[in-house]
Nucleic acid binder design. Structure first.
Lengths: 169, 169
DNA sequence: TTCGCTGCAAATCCTTTGCATGATT
DNA sequence: AATCATGCAAAGGATTTGCAGCGAA
């Protein structure tokens, strides 16, 4: 089903159907919420198809981005990550990310509040908003719990995200 | 004034005051809205102080990030950019970016609408939001004008930002 | 058969690091 | 004088590219 759509899209663009391309897309599709890096995709595909090369993974990701089948996000940790986009017409446009500063977990959520913001922008500034990207940094449920159990010191929450992330490398 | 604050902060942290550090910070301060890359900062400082090395610029930026004097943003074009943060107590936390897909211009704006979103997140998911980052992609005023003058074809607006940006390299 | 796609290795590009020298306190 | 910071060059790490061979159409 996913694969059939994909084959159709490839054909429409005069591109060839290859096992590598299908595997990369399938990996992204099945790891829906994991937000994989190129290297991670490579490792996963290699388990099933050891001949694949990392360069092919990069080239395929590039292709999928151009075909609008995949989207990229950068969490500020130096890696570019990829997630499957709206395949088959479902508009996954307005989904955003909650990023845990403790464990790095990424939670996706939808919200249309930003439509309101876009409208306001359009009115106040002369800027035509086409798309937007929202990242909320904080602490996820399980990290909050762990901390509560660990003791009652007041955590001084990170003021600067990027730095925070870098320090945890 | 800026420089005095900076010297005080350096002293507080047991760091030395050097010409390089001051010039990097000044460059960031005076180029307020330009969102410079490390390389650009390097070039600007080098005009006034040719002995400086790129590595020093990187090290200084790192320092400024840790001191919370500077913030970084990634526009998706592969470069990390830096902008001066809230010096002297002014809280510049909730400012976000409008990014022109045509010319790459970055416009900063403030908005507190996101506070509302944060509140909602907290209620619906158990996630403690500490900070957030919003990027709106679209077309700036002057690019819109140019286009109107150039002709009346319907522009097919970019569906996928990152790709769009990459293609303009 | 034709051309596009792949794998490999080399090349790039941005950023970081090691080390001896030089500057600041 | 004691450190810390700098410049340079080399190292790193992610991503891209060149090219000959392979595989889809």
């Amino acid at each position: 089903m996913l694969q059939e759509d994909f084959e159709k899209i490839l054909k429409e663009h005069g591109l060839k159907k290859t096992k590598q391309r299908i595997l990369v897309l399938e990996t992204l599709a099945s790891c829906g919420d994991r937000h994989l890096t190129a290297e991670e995709i490579y490792e996963i595909v290699k388990a099933e198809f050891p001949e694949i090369g990392l360069a092919t993974v990069y080239r395929t990701i590039q292709l999928l981005l151009e075909l609008n089948l995949v989207e990229s996000i950068q969490l500020g940790d130096g890696y570019v990550r990829y997630e499957i986009g709206r395949i088959g017409g479902k508009d996954a446009h307005h989904h955003h990310h909650l990023i845990c500063l403790e464990c790095g977990k990424v939670i996706s959520f939808r919200d249309d509040l930003l439509d309101e913001l876009e409208k306001r922008i359009k009115e106040s500034v002369s800027f035509q908003v086409i798309n937007h990207e929202v990242k909320l940094y904080g602490y996820c449920e399980s990290c909050l719990k762990q901390e509560q159990e660990a003791g009652k010191e007041n955590r001084e929450p990170a003021k600067h995200l990027e730095v925070q992330l870098e320090e945890r490398t």
